[in-house]
Design a protein around this nucleic acid. Structure first.
Length: 589
RNA sequence: CGGGACGUAGCUCAGCCUGGCUAGAGCGCCGGCUUUGGGAGCCGGAAGUCGCAGGUUCGAAUCCUGUCGUCCCGACCA
């Protein structure tokens, strides 16, 4: 393609509305343009990159035996009502009514396709002989995000590869799941992403039923915890800590228990400021309704409660913060003054609570707190649990080494669904014993746009983007430096034609622009391989070849140029492929 | 949905506080000349409903009210 014949609106200045690197660079490099908050046009270069990522996803899915199909974005609302997800999604679900003659049709734009695919399978799979089956599609999804942000990272319309597996039993599901997990590793590795598979909340099935694929990035919306020594990694919701349960003592002496006035101070910050103590000295007393019973959960002042951990620790079904009326009834005080001393309800505590030598807590009375609180003397605990969000420095649950907390971009998610949808939508099969059983499902998503955005976010320097060969809009940029110089134009034109003929994915910058402009654009967009034809080099019969990441170019005789370019591309492809295989193998391990 | 910021030319922004003349600059764009290895120089030119609506005023980009839009923080995100 000739630059002069395509459409690449690059920008020298940073658009005021873009804050994070991927957003700024994708706009400046002419990859995307915003249409409104949360929706973007993919310009020719951005679309090419997106389609290359899509092709990698498709190729690997098919290699793993998944079958591609294509479902409609427009779906009957009734399917979402049958699974209860109309309410679950709430405002996120885009739905509206259409007039058809004298009928009104209530439809939704698919935020995902569990309903449609399960309905399809319910109609056409009835025997164990037809299983297992994994289908996938690459399709536009719609979600009315409450707050679209971060450029193309969080949009209300996006390209998603979603796959669904159908199995006879849990063992087969494990196999399907593992297959998808492994494929995801290959996909992200081939796309040149530095990804981390992390454990995620598993939902109804439990165990290792869900993993997210994260790309660590400072501007990522999600947070993950990973061990600095071993491969353990989990999202923040899920991350366990390897803290040991402390010994529970019943001391008698120690500091004096005192009641102090703290008028109007209900937050950790206010109280610690007023009393001159540190948040880590304080005990946060959260009144939860756990299976509808009030329970006080004790968390250190500087920590954050993790409701999933509370649910698991207590073997509960539902965990929700109590309403103000309940809190007042249980503690005898308004919200903000709860404390464990003299509290009537059940009390559970995080491991860190007994380690506070001299704690500050609410006094269960308005406008008052207690200081000098000693666990085991002023109130009793029978056990402690891991009930809080992990933080940086916590010991790894596998090996005990310190963990780190980093932000990440979620690019993929694999999930064991079980029978939620098959039961709701009647997807049953007869097994070999003539038993009618619900089909066991798994679902597997990849945000294709996010592959591009995550690359832009993590692979750039001060001059612009740096694409891997595999998803670059074009692999090679050929620059004719001075298009008023007949010899340059002649040589560059010949080179372009020959590269094209040899199947090279090349963009030819044939613009009548100054060299500086062309070099800056080349770096900004970040084409992997740059080939320069200039008058200077031509005098010595040479052109120049340079990788985006190289400091200086290599001179190549004009007559060897095409072969050299092909050779370099081949070599790089081999290297990338090997590296991807190694990375994928590491992750699978 | 709570909190904050912003809206003036394609882009980045000044002007607004303290109302007043043809509404400005840089970049980009168009034409001309010069220039050609890292966003060139000179000359000339086109381009703006000052987000929109209403109000105050002799007079509004500027003050007031409303509204729409965008961004950021938080809540939310099967």
């Amino acid at each position: 393609m000739r630059w002069s014949k395509t459409f690449i609106p690059t920008m020298k200045e940073v658009p005021a509305d873009a804050e994070i690197p991927s957003h700024q660079l994708m706009l400046r490099a002419g990859l995307v343009r915003q249409v409104m908050a949360g929706s973007y046009t993919y310009l020719p270069l951005g679309w090419r990159a997106l389609r290359k990522a899509e092709a990698i996803v498709r190729e690997e899915m098919e290699r793993a035996g998944a079958i591609e199909l294509f479902m409609p974005a427009l779906q009957p609302i009734e399917l979402f009502e049958r699974t209860g997800r109309k309410d679950d999604f709430g405002n996120v679900l885009v739905h509206f009514t259409l007039k058809r003659g004298d009928k009104t049709v209530h439809v939704a734009l698919g935020p995902t396709h569990e309903e449609v695919v399960t309905d399809l399978i319910a109609h056409h799979i009835s025997s164990y002989r037809q299983l297992p089956l994994t289908v996938f599609q690459i399709q536009t999804k719609f979600r009315n995000e409450e707050r679209p942000r971060f450029g193309v990272l969080r949009t209300s319309e996006f390209l998603m590869k979603d796959a669904y597996s159908f199995d006879r039993n849990l063992e087969d599901l494990d196999r399907s799941y593992q297959l998808m997990y492994d494929v995801y590793c290959r996909i992200f590795a081939r796309c040149g992403l530095k990804y981390v598979p992390v454990e995620a909340e598993s939902g109804p099935i439990g165990g290792d039923a869900s993993h997210e694929f994260m790309v660590p990035a400072a501007n990522g919306e999600d947070r993950l915890v990973r061990c600095t020594a071993c491969p353990y990694a989990a999202n923040l919701e899920r991350a366990a800590t390897g803290r040991a349960a402390p010994e529970l003592l019943t001391p008698s002496g120690g500091p004096e228990l005192k009641r102090v006035d703290t008028p109007g101070s209900t937050t950790i910050e206010q109280v610690s400021q007023l009393l001159g103590c540190r948040p880590e000295q304080m005990i946060k007393t959260l009144i939860y309704l756990i299976d509808d019973e009030p329970v006080a959960v004790l968390i250190r002042g500087d920590h954050e409660a993790n409701e999933a951990k509370i649910r698991r620790a207590l073997g509960a079904k539902t965990v929700e913060l109590a309403d103000p009326a309940t809190i007042e009834r249980v503690t005898g005080a308004p919200v903000g003054f709860a404390g464990p001393v003299g509290l009537a309800c059940r009390i559970v505590a995080d491991h860190d609570i007994p380690r506070i030598p001299e704690a500050v807590t609410g006094a269960n009375e308005a406008d008052a707190h207690l200081t000098g609180v000693v666990v085991g003397r002023d109130f009793q605990l029978d056990a402690t649990y891991d009930l809080r969000m992990a933080t940086a420095g916590d010991p790894c649950p596998r090996c005990g080494e310190p963990m780190e907390l980093v932000h990440g971009i979620e690019v993929g998610h694999v999930f064991k669904l079980g029978t939620k949808y098959s039961e709701a939508l009647g997807a049953y099969f007869s097994d070999e014993h003539e038993q009618r059983r619900p089909i066991i499902m798994g679902c597997y998503g990849i945000g294709v746009n996010r592959i591009i955005a995550a690359l832009a976010e993590t692979s750039h320097d001060e001059n612009g983007l740096i694409w891997p060969l595999s998803v670059a809009p074009y692999e090679v940029l050929l620059i004719g430096l001075n298009m008023n110089d007949g010899s340059v134009v002649g040589a560059a034109d010949r080179l372009y034609e020959e590269l094209k003929q040899r199947g090279v994915d090349v963009l030819y910058d044939d613009r009548d622009a100054r060299p500086g402009v062309k070099f800056k654009d080349a770096d900004l967009i970040g084409f992997p391989l740059r080939v320069v034809v200039g008058a200077k080099g031509l005098r010595d019969g040479a052109i120049e070849v340079k990788w985006r990441t190289d400091a200086s170019p290599e001179k190549v005789p004009v007559e060897e140029a095409v072969d050299r370019v092909l050779e370099m591309l081949q070599q790089r492809r081999r290297d990338d492929e090997q590296q991807a295989a190694r990375q994928a193998a590491d992750a699978v391990r």
